[in-house]
Design a protein around this nucleic acid. Structure first.
Length: 740
DNA sequence: ACCAGAGCCCTTTTT
DNA sequence: GGGCTCTGGT
């Protein structure tokens, strides 16, 4: 297997995969084989014995990307992936904190709050402190707190120069105290705690610094300040950090991502090499040309131009509709035509800037009986009924969790109304205890005395009854004992919810089977122990990985999503809709600086999703938020060369037919690299004591790594990838290589 | 205590 | 247009 590892990589890809033990930055354009490079790099490091799985840390942003990496890696090498630190930033921090909860100052059973829960906690705090929520909206506060944390700032470190900010900081402080009292953490807290813990405990930091020989970061352009600082802390003097990213695809500036981290990386990590992956294997030439032309309008790019040897392909089809309805009809007709041509529905995507735009298309598709799938709705673990069930689970795990208690203390209704809960909160605030503690001491007032005692009895009864049971059985018991399921069974509209609750039992079962419900802990002495706490693990899983939007993926369906959620995906046919000023670029984006450029990168992402056929469309008039708007075509349409566009609607513009073009650029001479790749694995050790993966030094070429060897005796030739001189083939007898 | 109808806002989103 | 909060009636 491993002999084929390096086959069919192009030159820059090969260089990146076989880099010596140094830090490097890879500028990977859309569709240039970024994930392949990352996974092959890890596989290569492992098979050549340069590092053991436990010495690798590979980090991504989404669970999907992490999973993809893991799947691809396991198909390349046989390796115990459990000892490898591969996952999302937050997932890895969670793993760290489960091991080092003492040092981090957290209870062992700490639970993770998602955004909804964070918001409700803030609302609670506002109410308890009689703060005008018109003046301090909860949403804005949660943004304030998360942003501060993502800059690495605790409440006492935020500088406040005005009264308003001072009040926000004060509330941030209250929020911190509440989290600590209840033993819960939000997403940003996972990162910040982990970061603080590492910076505070030198021994801990040194351990991980020495352990991680290689750190690989995916989608580096999306890292925020804290994530960058975290990486710097984890990387020791002998850690090689490989950052892979694309500044042109940075579309999360609005939530704190800093493209500038790519420049900072050049400064702080002194990468020996910056490698550009510019050959695109996804899209036809005209699509890439459009993308290149558009993005050229941005300033301060790191500079990168996509090319393909696949030929020009078709022009981009453009349609102007009179109304959003007419635009939808155009898309619908085109989809039908594509279906007739045998294009699978999964290979067709409708993209839009904002979620509200999906409805017209959904309507049309529904009436036409075309199956479709909308991304970005409520996910499984975010559904109310599932949240309720999980709240019971959380209370068994940690009754001090106020969010969980409030969610179910009167659901299903059991006679504990708003007034009683208010009493309870008053007592809790006054005495500085959690709601559960307040409830246990009768804080809900005399009216609620009996029902509250019953509730406490219910939770404790559940804990006793489920002790020792397997996770799915625990869930099943909770659903019955809480009468949650019965409530929905009795509701004639509750069918879906009952199904989701039953699905939750399956989810617990799957989770147990896939992970064993166990968190692996590697101790300082290298031994491995397991934290056998399936419940905490499952709760973390539910928060960190909220699950798919739609559980059943089953049959083929047309894909509908925002441009943001399309990043990383690709389709044969792409319909980029709603190309109107105000919508895309969005009005609200024009206010913040760099906003327009981020919108343009968004458009760049949209264009580069298409493999074969790309459609642009817009409407002169549309209904949005219950109001009719008249829009002019997006400026982005003008930024694509007219020669690449084919107007389908009667638009007073040139109707240029495409001239067949020569391939865009780049040479396709492509050295056959597979020949020397073939011997990796089989001849991984030469007679002379050098081996594949060996770090070497050469008088003239400097620092490098052996990536291949063949011949025997005096005729051994080695292939070395030098940091500064690239890949060289040398005769071992004469080359005077020194092992380092 | 609980439910039903009226008013209000509204990019993008993963963890 | 739709999801969420607030208010008033039972």
């Amino acid at each position: 297997m491993s002999s084929k590892l390096l086959a069919n990589l192009n030159e820059p890809q090969l260089t990146a995969v076989t880099l010596p033990h140094t830090s490097a930055l890879i500028l990977a354009g859309a569709g240039s084989g970024k994930t392949r490079v990352l996974t092959t790099r890890i596989a290569w490091l492992l098979t050549t014995g340069q590092v053991s799985p436990s010495g690798v840390l590979a980090v991504t942003f989404t669970n999907k990307a992490a999973k993809e990496m893991l799947t691809r890696l396991s198909s390349m090498v046989q390796v115990n992936v459990r000892t490898m630190w591969m996952g999302t930033f937050h997932g890895l921090c969670n793993r760290f904190l489960r091991m080092h909860w003492r040092e981090a100052g957290l209870p062992q059973t700490f639970t993770i709050m998602d955004t909804q829960e964070q918001l409700s906690m803030i609302k609670r705090i506002l109410k308890q402190n009689n703060i005008d929520d018109e003046k301090f909206p909860a949403k804005q506060l949660s943004w304030f707190i998360s942003s501060a944390k993502e800059e690495g700032l605790r409440s006492n470190a935020v500088e406040a120069f005005d009264e308003y900010t001072r009040k926000q900081v004060e509330l941030y402080q209250l929020y911190e105290a509440t989290c600590q009292r209840e033993g819960v953490v939000d997403f940003a807290e996972l990162m910040l705690r982990c970061y603080e813990c590492l910076s505070k405990f030198e021994a801990l930091r040194e351990h991980y610094n020495a352990r991680f020989r290689y750190i690989l970061v995916d989608e580096f352009q999306d890292t925020n300040t804290l994530q960058y600082k975290w990486l710097r802390l984890l990387a020791g003097p002998n850690t090689a950090v490989l950052a892979v990213g694309d500044d042109d695809q940075s579309i999360y500036g609005f939530r704190g991502a800093k493209v500038a981290n790519m420049q900072r990386f050049e400064h702080d990590f002194a990468p020996a090499k910056i490698i550009k992956l510019e050959q695109n294997y996804r899209s036809d030439g005209s699509i890439l040309e459009a993308a290149n032309a558009l993005i050229r309008n941005n300033n301060g790019r790191l500079g990168k131009e996509l090319w393909t040897d696949q030929g020009h392909g078709e022009p981009i089809r453009v349609f102007q509709g009179y109304s959003d309805g007419e635009e939808a009809a155009f898309v619908l007709d085109s989809v039908k035509a594509a279906m007739n041509d045998g294009v699978p529905l999964d290979d067709i995507a409708i993209l839009y800037r904002s979620n509200a735009q999906s409805r017209v298309f959904e309507h049309g598709l529904f009436n036409a009986g075309i199956p479709y799938r909308v991304y970005g709705g409520l996910r499984f673990f975010e559904r109310a009924e599932v949240k309720h069930a999980m709240a019971y689970l959380r209370l068994i795990n940690n009754p001090e969790d106020d969010n969980a208690l409030l969610r179910v203390v009167n659901f299903p209704p059991r006679g504990i109304g708003a007034k009683s809960i208010e009493n309870l909160q008053q007592v809790a605030t006054a005495t500085g205890v959690t709601l559960w503690q307040a409830a246990c001491s009768g804080g809900a007032g005399s009216r609620a005395q009996v029902p509250m005692a019953q509730f406490i009895g219910l939770i404790e009864g559940m804990r006793i009854a489920t002790k020792g049971l397997a996770l799915p059985e625990i869930v099943r018991h909770l659903l019955d004992a809480s009468t949650l399921k019965a409530l929905y069974v009795a509701d004639k509209d509750g069918q879906d919810r009952v199904e989701n609750l039953e699905e939750l039992i399956s989810a617990a079962d799957n989770f147990l089977r896939e992970t064993g419900g166990v968190i692996h802990i590697e101790n300082f002495d290298g031994s491995i122990s397991e934290s056998d706490d399936p419940m905490s693990a499952f709760l973390a899983h539910a928060s960190l990985e909220a699950g798919d939007t739609q559980a059943a993926e089953g049959r083929a369906a047309l894909q509908m999503m925002t441009v943001h959620s399309s990043k990383g995906l690709e389709f044969d046919y792409v319909f980029m809709t709603g190309l109107e000023e105000g919508l895309f670029p969005h009005d609200n984006s024009l206010n913040d600086d760099g906003g327009l450029e981020e919108e343009r990168r968004l458009m760049y992402v949209a264009i580069t999703r298409a493999r074969k056929r790309l459609h642009f469309s817009y409407a002169q008039m549309r209904m949005l938020h219950g109001q009719t708007r008249y829009n002019v075509p997006s400026r982005f349409l003008d930024e694509v060369p007219a020669a690449l566009l084919k107007w389908l609607s009667a638009k007073p513009k040139n109707l240029l037919a495409m001239e067949p073009h020569a391939p865009l650029s780049g040479d396709s001479s492509g050295r056959n690299l597979s020949s020397f790749a073939a011997s990796i694995g089989s001849a991984s050790r030469t007679d002379s004591g050098f081996r594949i993966g060996q770090q070497v030094s050469h008088a003239k070429f400097g620092h490098g790594v052996i990536i291949n060897a063949d011949g025997s005796g005096k005729n051994v030739q080695v292939e070395v990838n030098f940091v500064d001189h690239g890949i060289k083939r040398l005769a071992l007898e004469y080359a005077k290589l020194t092992a380092i």
